[in-house]
Amino acid sequence: MKHTSFEDMNCSIAQSMEIVGERWSLLIIRDCFDGLRRFGQFQRKLGIAKNILSNRLNRLIDEGILEKQPIDGGAQQEYVLTQKGIDLFPVLMSLMQWGDKYMPNPEGQRMYVVESKTGKLIQGVGAISASGEPLELNDLQQVKGPGLGGKRIRRSRS
């Protein structure tokens, strides 16, 4: 099924969805955070067709979210998150927390995220004030920035 491109839409969310909005992309990135690095590992865990996985991995590489690195100087390669990919961690945390709240498993929490040093549960991801206080939706407003001058944009693939 062909999807409508958001490439020309001047919206940060639409631009982000153009890159990571395909159904397999965030699951691949999730698995990278869980330590998977090899094509076969992704294929076995996700049950995704090899051609689709190859396309998604290549797109994530093209977008600078993943990079290929040789394994022990050999011909085999592994997929590693770049800083751009690591910066998606709060997005995945938010989706996980939303899913736990609205699509819970009847047997209990699927996964806990704790601080490595203390073993304590982390706080929920959300908007935080400049002074570190959690904010609610009614505490926020969106203010037009210089990039919203009504122009459509075309994202460059660098």
Results as ranks from 00 to 15, higher is better:
2 K>M: 14
2 K>R: 13
11 C>W: 15
11 C>I: 08
16 S>N: 12
21 G>M: 02
22 E>H: 11
24 W>V: 02
24 W>H: 10
25 S>E: 10
27 L>E: 14
28 I>P: 03
29 I>A: 04
33 F>T: 05
36 L>Q: 02
38 R>F: 13
43 Q>H: 08
46 L>V: 05
49 A>F: 15
52 I>G: 08
52 I>T: 15
52 I>N: 11
56 R>L: 06
57 L>R: 05
58 N>Y: 14
59 R>W: 15
60 L>D: 06
60 L>H: 03
61 I>G: 04
65 I>F: 06
66 L>N: 00
66 L>W: 03
68 K>R: 12
69 Q>P: 01
72 D>T: 05
73 G>L: 06
77 Q>H: 05
80 V>W: 03
82 T>F: 00
84 K>M: 06
86 I>T: 10
86 I>N: 09
88 L>T: 01
89 F>K: 03
91 V>D: 08
92 L>M: 01
95 L>G: 09
96 M>S: 13
97 Q>E: 12
99 G>L: 09
103 M>H: 15
108 G>P: 00
109 Q>F: 15
112 Y>I: 09
116 S>H: 11
117 K>L: 11
118 T>V: 02
120 K>D: 12
123 Q>I: 08
123 Q>L: 06
124 G>H: 10
124 G>Q: 12
124 G>R: 09
127 A>H: 13
128 I>E: 04
130 A>D: 14
132 G>I: 00
138 N>A: 11
141 Q>N: 11
145 G>S: 13
146 P>G: 15
151 K>V: 04
151 K>F: 05
152 R>C: 14
155 R>D: 07
158 S>P: 02
158 S>V: 09
